[in-house]
Design a protein around this nucleic acid. Structure first.
Lengths: 196, 196
DNA sequence: GTCTATAGTATGATAGAC
DNA sequence: GTCTATCATACTATAGAC
C-alpha cells in the first residue's frame, strides 16, 4: 500500500468508500482522511469529487475486464464460465450482505442523481452483458442469448438487493442453486438443438 | 393538495423526493422549498430529517397494505393475484426507468448508511413477501412457497435495477413475459400435485 | 508533490416573535 | 401553526507557501 503512489491510493480508497457508503454520502474530506492526506493534496490529484468518481469507474472497468479474462482462461466449457459469473454471489457474499452489488448500487444512485457518469458506470454492466451473451451463444442459445444474458444479470442484481436488505446468506445460496439448475436445463436444450 | 394539512403535504412531498433523488441527496431545505413552507415550519412538524423518513416509511407501509388488499379483492385465483404483483413493473414502468423500485432503492441506501430505519423499510419488503408466500401456498406450492415468494421479489428488484440502468422499457416487457410463463408452469404443477 | 489557510456556500437544528 | 433570525458545523473548491 505504502509503495503505491498517492493517486492510486486515492482511487483505491474512494472505490471502497463509494461502495460501502454510497457516492453521495462520501465527501472529499472523508476520502482524504481515509488516505491520510490533506484535502489540498487530494485536490492536486483530482480537481473535483466527480473526477475521483470517473477514476473509480475506470478502475472498476479494468478490474472487470481482468476478471472476465480470468474466467475465460479457467473455464473449459461455456457452462463452466457462466457458472463463474453465478459464483461471484457466493464468493463476495459477505460484502454483498453489507453493501450490495458494487455495479448495481452505483448505477442506481447515479441514475437517481441524473449524474453524467451514469453512462460510464453502465459500461461495466455492458461488459458483463456482452460477455455473458457470447457465452450463451457458445452454449447454443442462438437468438435468445442476449435475453438470457440480461436475465442472468438481472437475477444477480435482484439476489444482491434482497440479500442485502434481509442480511440473509441462506437466500443467496438458495438462489444460486436455483439458477444453476436453470443453466443446466439450458445446456441440455442447447445440446439437443445442435444435434438435430 | 391545498386542502390537506401541512404535515401530510410534507410527508407526501418527501416521499416523492426521496424516491426520485435518494434520501441522502435531499436536504430538509429541499423538502421545505418543494412544500413551499420555511424550514422553521417544517421543523415544527418534524424535529429531524430522520423523523420525516420514518413518516415516509409509515406512509409507504400503509399504501402497500392498501394495494395488497385491492389485489386480494380483484383477483379470483392465486395465479391472477400473483399476476397483479408482476404487472406493477408494467404499470409503473415510466417511474421505474427513471428512479428504480421505491422499496428496493430505499433499502439499499439505508443499508449502506447503516441507518436505523432500515429495519422499518424492510417491513415493506416483508409485506410483499408474506403476501406472495400465501398466494403460492394457495397455488399448491407447499413448502416451496416462501422460496418462490423471495424469488419473485428478487426478480422484480433485478428487473427494476437493470431497466433503470439501461433505461430500457423493452427489457421490462421481456422479463414480465418470461416470469409469467414461469408462473403458468408452476400453476400446472401445483394442480397436478393436488390431484394425486 | 504536499501542505496551510481561507472563501463562499449549504447543512441540520434551535430560539423566539407573531 | 407559521414565520424570521441565527448558530455551529460541514462542504467543495481555490490560492499560494514550502
Amino acid at each position: 500500500m505504502s509503495a503505491k503512489n498517492t493517486r492510486d491510493r486515492i482511487v483505491e480508497t474512494a472505490d471502497r468508500l463509494f461502495y460501502e457508503k454510497g457516492f453521495e454520502y462520501i465527501s472529499v474530506g472523508d476520502i482524504a482522511d481515509a488516505v491520510e492526506i490533506t484535502r489540498g493534496n487530494l485536490t492536486f490529484h483530482f480537481k473535483t469529487r466527480d473526477d475521483v468518481l470517473e477514476a473509480v469507474i475506470e478502475r472498476r472497468m479494468g478490474r472487470t475486464r481482468d476478471m472476465l479474462a480470468q474466467w475465460e482462461k479457467e473455464g473449459c466449457t461455456a457452462a463452466e464460465r457462466i457458472g463463474s459469473f453465478i459464483n461471484i454471489l457466493i464468493m463476495n457474499r459477505t460484502k454483498i450482505l453489507l453493501h450490495g452489488c458494487p455495479v448495481g448500487t452505483l448505477c442506481t444512485e447515479l441514475a437517481k442523481l441524473e449524474h453524467a457518469a451514469l453512462t460510464n458506470a453502465n459500461r461495466i454492466f455492458s461488459l458483463f452483458r456482452d460477455w455473458l451473451k457470447s457465452q450463451f451463444e457458445q452454449l447454443g442459445c442462438g437468438g435468445e442469448s442476449k435475453a438470457h444474458a440480461m436475465h442472468l444479470l438481472a437475477w444477480s442484481q435482484g439476489t444482491a438487493t434482497l440479500a442485502q436488505a434481509f442480511r440473509d446468506e441462506t437466500f443467496i445460496r438458495a438462489e444460486v442453486s436455483r439458477v444453476q439448475a436453470w443453466l443446466a436445463g439450458l445446456g441440455k436444450q442447447g445440446t439437443r438443438r445442435r444435434k438435430r
